[in-house]
Every structure is written in C-alpha cells, then in structure tokens.
Simulated scan of single mutants.
Amino acid sequence: MPASKDSLYASPLGEIAAFSFDENVVKVFPDMIRRSVPGYGTMISAIGLLAGRYARENSRCYDLGCSLGAAALAMRANIAVRNCKIVAVDCSEAMIEQCRRDIELAPAEVDIEWRCADIRDIEIRDASVVVLNFTLQFIPLEDRGRFIAGLYDGLLPGGVLILSEKLAFDDKRQQDLQTEMHHLFKKAQGYSELEISQKRTALENVLIPETFSEHRARLEAAGFSSVEVWFQYFNFASMIALK
C-alpha cells in the first residue's frame, strides 16, 4: 500500500473524536508516525539489532501493538537462529489486514503470525524478545502492572523487553520544555498549529504517558533485574528491561 500523507487533522473539525487506529489512520500511518515521533526510524532499526542479539532457537519474539508491523519486520530481518517465530498482535483489524497483505509481498524464512486481539488477552510464553513500541501508553493505567507482570512471567531467563513510550516529567519546567520541543519537531515536519492542536485533543485521555521513574518502578516490581533508557529524543524514549 503506497504511503499517503497524513492530513487527517488539517481541516477544522466541529467535533474531534477520540483517536483510534481505524482505516483512515492505517492509510496514513507510516507518514504520521515518521512525522510525529522523533527518532522513530532509529528505534525501529535498533529493535531489529536487539532481536538479532537476544532471539533464541525454539523461542518466540512478540511485537505487541504492532500497528503495521515495522518492529516485527525489523526483527525478522535480523533474526538468524532456527525455529524462532514472531508473533505480532494488534487490536485494530484494519492494521492487521494490511500487515497480512503486505507480508504476502515479502516472504522470508522467519515466520510472522499476525493476530488481531487485545494484547492483554495474549498468553506470552517461551519468549526471548518482547517489544512494546509505543503501546503501553494506550493501556488503562490500572491494567499496566498486571500486564507487565505477565510479560515477565512469559519471558525466558535472560530475555529482553523493549519498551518505547512517550514520557511525562515530574518537573514542570522539563514537562513544558519537552512538550514545546515536540511541537516544534512536528512543525518542522510540516504539521500546522491546527493539526497539532486537533490531534492533541483527539489523543487526550487515550494516550496516558508516565514518567521514567514510574515505568522503572513497575518493571522492577514485576521482577526485571535491570532497566535502562537506551534512546531518548525529547519526550519520546525507549527502555531495555532484562530478565
């Protein structure tokens, strides 16, 4: 599917609906994510490298909240061990159907299983790599602790969780600065003030960011022995949690 330019919020909207990953978003998602998330391409490339490092024979690698499968495809390109399966899950039927169409055009030795489901309902087992690439932020706060604990239980000893999130900051000056810089980034990518404002409204109460300290505390409570930020660009960061 050719990538289309994201202009979903370019015209004034009388009523702004809550953001959802529907067919309209699917059509423009590659452009939207590239122009909205600083460093996205770098993170995807590194996820592939990390999967190549941590994937084991006879194990599974999970891309939870896979959208159009960028992380899953990066993992597939770097995994060299035998009998390692990638499971890519998203609750958007439109996203998964597009993934299935795209994958038919690019067969490879490493199998990807595409599942349309709520990631909270997926049993994680025999996992060497789990990826949550800007996914946890869309899960209700009250479900996050139990969900992360389930991922930990499903990871093999020595496995890795890669968690990328939009961050909040305890210090108001940092919060204001990082928010301002993100808006400037989006303006530099061609988004107008109207687009930025309307999308922010659409995401309100849908995307709930947390601080790094909150993420770290939850991961350590689940049992992860080491948690560090490996990449950050303004208020977007990616963490590595080791079991």
Rank of each mutant, 00 (worst) to 15 (best):
A46F: 14
A168E: 10
E109H: 12
P209E: 01
A217H: 14
I240P: 00
F234T: 14
F29N: 00
A46Q: 13
Y40A: 06
L141F: 04
D126Y: 05
Q232T: 08
M43T: 11
A241L: 10
S92N: 03
D31N: 15
G41F: 03
G39Q: 11
Y191N: 01
E228I: 03
D22V: 09
I162F: 02
Y152R: 15
I44Y: 03
A94N: 08
E123F: 02
V206G: 05
K166T: 08
I240V: 13
Y54C: 08
C84R: 04
L105I: 02
V110R: 00
F231E: 12
S11H: 09
N133E: 03
Y40W: 13
L207M: 13
A51N: 14
A17H: 08
D118Q: 01
Y54I: 07
D126W: 04
R35V: 06
L73C: 08
F234I: 11
N78F: 07
G41A: 12
L105H: 08
V129K: 11
V227W: 09
L242Q: 10
D153I: 06
F224H: 12
V227G: 09
R100E: 15
Y9A: 14
D176M: 07
G158T: 07
Q198N: 11
T42H: 09
G154E: 07
G150L: 06
F236P: 00
I96G: 05
D170L: 13
G48A: 02
Q189A: 10
Y40M: 11
E15M: 07
V25A: 06
E165S: 02
K5W: 03
K85A: 07
Y40F: 15
F236V: 14
V129A: 11
I47V: 15
S92I: 01
I196H: 05
L163C: 14
L13G: 01
L8A: 05
A149G: 14
D31Y: 12
D31L: 11
A71D: 15
I148D: 14
L184G: 05
F231W: 12
M75V: 10
G190S: 11
D31G: 07
E93K: 11
R115G: 01
F224C: 13
P209R: 02
A217S: 15
